[in-house]
């Protein structure tokens, strides 16, 4: 899910930086409280090491992203959290590129925000196990959207659809399922041990 240096055209990665810079600055200055930072750094740590969990699938190697998990725990702050995780991955693991930090943050951060939006549906529904269900949905949707954005970026380089579909889309489908299970289980578990960590949790609610 990480795009390396030298793959994309300058127009694409420069606009990635512009979008990421604007969105991260807005969220960090207007929508984040300093008391959120310790939680943000813990979730960032999870996202940072998630990429080390490799799942060898057919022709490629895929790994966990945990963008959905960042979304349901941090809300809007998931975007800067993913930015920080990607900066660390790029410099420490040479995972992804330096020029592509911006566009990679867009590809994984926007789906994290979408996951947050999906997860907020828990406040409007009242079914049994809704945190697990919507957590799973959020986790799966985050990856599915990430695949879509990554595919668009690769298609913009003149890559053929016949290549992108099997090696990017199909290869990442198991990650959609795995992250849906992981994030769903995480949401269900957190509800019992530390529900304040979940966005959209209301303390006096009966579940």
């Amino acid at each position: 899910m990480h795009i390396s240096d030298g793959v994309l055209s300058p127009q694409v990665w420069v606009s990635g930086y512009v979008i990421t810079g604007a969105l991260a600055t807005y969220i960090l200055t207007k929508k984040t409280d300093i008391s959120e930072i310790p939680k943000l750094s813990v979730i960032t740590a999870a996202v940072f090491v998630a990429s080390l969990i490799h799942i060898p699938i057919g022709p490629t190697s895929v790994h966990l992203v945990l963008s959905g998990l960042a979304g349901i725990t941090l809300g809007l702050a998931a975007f800067p959290a993913i930015l920080v995780a990607l900066i660390l991955q790029a410099f420490l693991f040479q995972h992804g590129g330096i020029t592509t930090i911006g566009i990679n943050t867009v590809n994984m951060g926007l789906p994290a925000l979408a996951a947050y939006g999906v997860f907020l549906a828990v406040t409007r529904t009242n079914i049994k196990g809704k945190y697990t269900i919507f957590g799973g949905l959020a986790g799966g949707i985050a990856i599915a959207l990430g695949i879509a954005l990554l595919s668009l970026c690769l298609l913009s380089t003149g890559e053929y659809l016949e290549y992108v579909v099997p090696y990017v889309v199909v290869a990442h489908l198991p990650v959609v399922a795995i992250e849906a299970i992981v994030v769903g289980a995480f949401a269900g578990f957190m509800l019992r041990v530390r529900p304040q960590l979940l966005k959209g949790y209301k303390p006096r609610e009966v579940v």
Binding site: S4, D5, G6, V7, T60, G97, L154, Y167, V168
Partner: peptide
């Protein structure tokens, strides 16, 4: 130069 699904090695 090798490229695969957005990864690149040189």
């Amino acid at each position: 130069v090798a490229e695969h699904s957005g990864h690149r090695a040189e």
